[in-house]
């Protein structure tokens, strides 16, 4: 399906707990994935360079540099999908992690199948569009997963690309958060609308001239989002 499936997908596990990190490796390797473990946040940049992961599994509670900071540092140089592990269900923490650049999160403890499903969902591209899409001055190229606005390339994560492609693919259609969760995140997670909200904020900050007054993606109060066709 995807161009990356020719080799084993690579997962970088960033976790300070040795047992948990090893256990994560065992389970993911059992699923046919290649893994590497980073025991502290300081070593992540080096591992990013040498291991070149396809997805990062990041524990938010790390000694030294904390998970949020690691997340931000990865995002400075890479659009690699990040799934964070959190022990806290507190909304604030999850939202902060997502705002720092994580694509998805999973709350400890979890089922192995759930973990694998989340990782796979981030590895698999949800093909929202098949051909190059022009939308006003925005051009989306599904082959190279690139976005240009007015000729300038935009740095979007794969998830943000899919989110944008989903909305622009059928302009004017209102997508509820539930539908977006299913189509873009690739699994059904009822009620977890903060995932959509936080990513929408990040996406807007990248594509809109003024993220406070969006002109491309409109919020339909109480329903969801829609792309406004350029006039």
């Amino acid at each position: 399906m995807s161009h990356r499936r020719t080799h084993h997908d690579r997962v970088l596990i960033v976790d300070d707990d040795a047992s948990l990190a090893e256990m994560l490796s065992i389970v993911l390797e059992g699923e046919g994935l290649t893994t590497a473990v980073c025991r502290s946040g300081d070593k992540v940049p080096a591992a990013m360079g040498s291991f070149r992961p396809d997805v990062v599994l990041l524990d938010l509670m790390l000694p030294g540099v904390d998970g949020m900071e690691v997340c931000r540092r990865i995002r400075e140089s890479s659009n690699v999908p990040i799934v964070m592990l959190t022990a806290r269900t507190d909304t604030d923490d999850v939202v902060a992690g997502l705002a720092a650049g994580a694509d998805d999160y999973i709350v400890k403890p979890f089922k192995n199948s759930e973990l694998v499903a989340r990782i796979r969902a981030r590895l698999r591209r949800t093909d929202q569009i098949l051909e190059t899409l022009e939308f006003g001055d925005i051009v989306l190229d599904p082959a190279g997963h690139t976005v240009h606005r007015g000729g300038q390339p935009l740095e979007l994560t794969p998830l943000e690309f899919d989110l944008l492609a989903c909305l622009l693919g059928t302009p004017e259609q209102v997508f509820t958060r539930e539908v977006l969760l299913q189509k873009v995140w690739g699994y059904h997670h009822p009620g977890d609308t903060k995932l959509v909200n936080v990513h929408m904020t990040r996406l807007r900050s990248k594509i809109e001239d003024d993220a406070e007054n969006p002109t491309i993606i409109r919020t339909v109060r109480g329903v969801g989002y829609q792309a406004i066709a350029p006039s």
């Binding site: 047992s19 994560l24 065992i26 059992g30 022990a87 089922k111 192995n112 973990l115």
Partner: peptide, 24 residues
């Protein structure tokens, strides 16, 4: 509460994952 939650959850996660592996 937050601390206990975290301190308990990390080992519990490992145990649970191991349990899942054994179960399968």
């Amino acid at each position: 509460v937050s601390d206990v939650s975290h301190e308990l959850r990390t080992p519990l996660t490992t145990i649970k994952m191991a349990g899942d592996v054994l179960h399968e």
